[in-house]
């Protein structure tokens, strides 16, 4: 996938507020560890593994900060400190494919 200039990619701060893009249009199919997601807003189908699935499911319920997402993932049994990098990368990629976006801070 091409990388383009993306406002979300420059700033990954723990205080950022994230939200899912039109989560009402999400449609999931789950088999084993792989999830397939249809996103009605963009008409795209995505295949996702555990981490982005977890993040998206959480964000579907409401806005969260990066720190809250990290806490949630650690809670779900994610190991190690460098895990926070993976979450940042996941958020960034999810943002590039228009599944999540930065919300204006309240």
């Amino acid at each position: 996938m091409e990388h383009t200039t993306d406002s979300a990619s420059h700033t990954n701060r723990d205080g950022d507020h994230w939200r899912a893009v039109s989560p009402a249009t999400f449609r999931w199919a789950n088999w084993d560890a792989e999830s397939l997601l249809f996103h009605g807003e963009t008409g795209e189908t995505h295949i996702l593994n555990a981490l982005p699935t977890l993040i998206l499911l959480a964000l579907s319920k409401g806005e969260m900060t990066t720190a809250e997402i990290l806490a949630l993932c650690l809670d779900a049994g994610a190991p190690s400190p460098q895990f926070s990098d993976k979450i940042h990368t996941s958020l960034q990629t999810l943002s590039e494919i228009e599944l999540v976006e930065l919300a204006a801070s309240p």
Partner: peptide, 24 residues
Amino acid sequence: PRHLAFVRLSQNAFNYRLIGVAGF
């Protein structure tokens, strides 16, 4: 595995993307 069958079958369809959520 079902997720692979999903991917292969949807790629095999002529109008998967066109019919949107119905196709999914």
